[in-house]
């Protein structure tokens, strides 16, 4: 299902941010209008899609954030909001008042948390996040983006226990933005990321917190013991995929996913159905995959990839590498 960006403005400037470009390029009045929100809701309803993931920037910066949520809930969508949790007290109180009676299964938050020790965060921001978690903790899943190999998860475990968050952590790996400079994990460092992540196995087990891996993690770098533990502990809910997520911007532009946000950008109005959108971006992905299997040379002949168990890591790595070459590949790659 596509992600809908209420605004591209953000309150933070994270070094790994996939959306870095969009934050800096965004116009001051860069917010989704009601007319376009209703169009998107109709578009989703026509596709029989009942889930409505809301992103930013920081979506709570939208002046009609609460009203738009209430409207979408009334239209029977189940909403997940990706937020930093950073907002003023007034905004938080208003959100609490507006949303407190909505069942958690209908409205949830994924709160992207930065480690205050590793990523510079002013104390006021940290306190703001804690206030948010205190109010909405029972409907929050912690999200953490890994952009350096010496990351720590301890602060997340503390937050989960202190504020009663869901006992799953959504772990994302920072990917490159082709043609841009952001901090990301290089393919050769992913093994170390896995090792560090799984060094927390005793804590995961003791606290009964499940690690959830976002897209772009390759299967082959996990050894059988690590993979076995992940499958046993989480019920095997991993697909090691890289497929079009599709983001819809406040100006109704769409793209495959944030790392590919400047690649084959179209307008939602160019498509009649959600299926058409996914077909379009899937075809683009497939074209690139025919050029290069994945992030490692071995991906080209990988059985896991051929059998659909792994997509060969994030496509953004391949596109970034293509930019370093003379443009001899298929034209779709350079659009």
């Amino acid at each position: 299902m596509p992600n809908i960006l209420l605004t591209q403005r953000c309150v933070r400037s994270c070094p790994y941010c996939f959306a870095n470009k969009h934050m800096s390029d965004s116009a001051p009045d860069d917010i989704l209008s009601w007319e376009d929100l209703i169009y998107i809701a109709d578009f989703m309803e026509a596709a029989k899609e009942r889930r409505f993931p809301i992103l930013g920037g920081e979506p709570t910066l939208h002046p009609d954030f609460n009203d738009m949520l209430i409207y979408l809930l009334e239209r029977n969508f189940d909403i997940n909001v990706f937020t930093s949790g950073i907002m003023t007290n007034e905004k938080l109180e208003e959100a609490d008042l507006a949303l407190r009676d909505v069942p958690p299964e209908r409205l949830s938050f994924t709160c992207n948390l930065n480690d205050p020790e590793k990523t510079h965060s002013p104390l006021a921001e940290v306190e703001s996040v804690k206030r948010f978690l205190k109010v909405f903790g029972n409907r929050v899943t912690a999200g953490f983006n890994i952009y350096r190999s010496d990351f720590k998860l301890d602060f997340i475990f503390r937050y989960i226990n202190e504020f009663g968050l869901n006992r799953t952590v959504r772990l994302g790996i920072a990917h490159p933005i082709p043609g841009k400079k952001n901090k990301f994990i290089k393919p050769e460092d992913i093994k170390a990321i896995y090792n560090r992540l799984l060094s927390y196995i005793p804590v995961f087990e003791r606290l009964r917190i499940k690690p959830g891996l976002d897209c772009g993690f390759p299967l082959c770098l996990l050894d059988d013991a690590q993979l076995g533990w992940l499958y046993r502990f989480t019920g095997g809910k991993y697909d090691f995929g890289c497929a079009p997520v599709v983001d819809i911007g406040p100006d109704m532009k769409i793209w495959s996913c944030f790392p590919l946000s400047s690649f084959h950008t179209k307008s939602l109005f160019e498509f009649n159905t959600l299926k058409e959108v996914y077909d379009y971006y899937s075809r683009i992905h497939d074209i690139i995959r025919t050029e290069v299997g994945g992030i490692f040379e071995e991906c080209d002949n990988c059985n896991f990839r051929e059998e659909g168990l792994c997509r060969g890591g994030c496509l953004a790595h391949s596109l970034s590498n293509f930019r370093k070459e003379h443009p001899l590949r298929m034209k779709e790659i350079y659009m």
Binding site: S33, W34, E35, I38, A41, D42, Y71, E74, R75
Partner: peptide
């Protein structure tokens, strides 16, 4: 100026 209320009501 965009008849937003009409659209909201109709869509609801």
């Amino acid at each position: 100026g965009c008849y937003t209320s009409h659209r909201i009501l109709s869509s609801l």
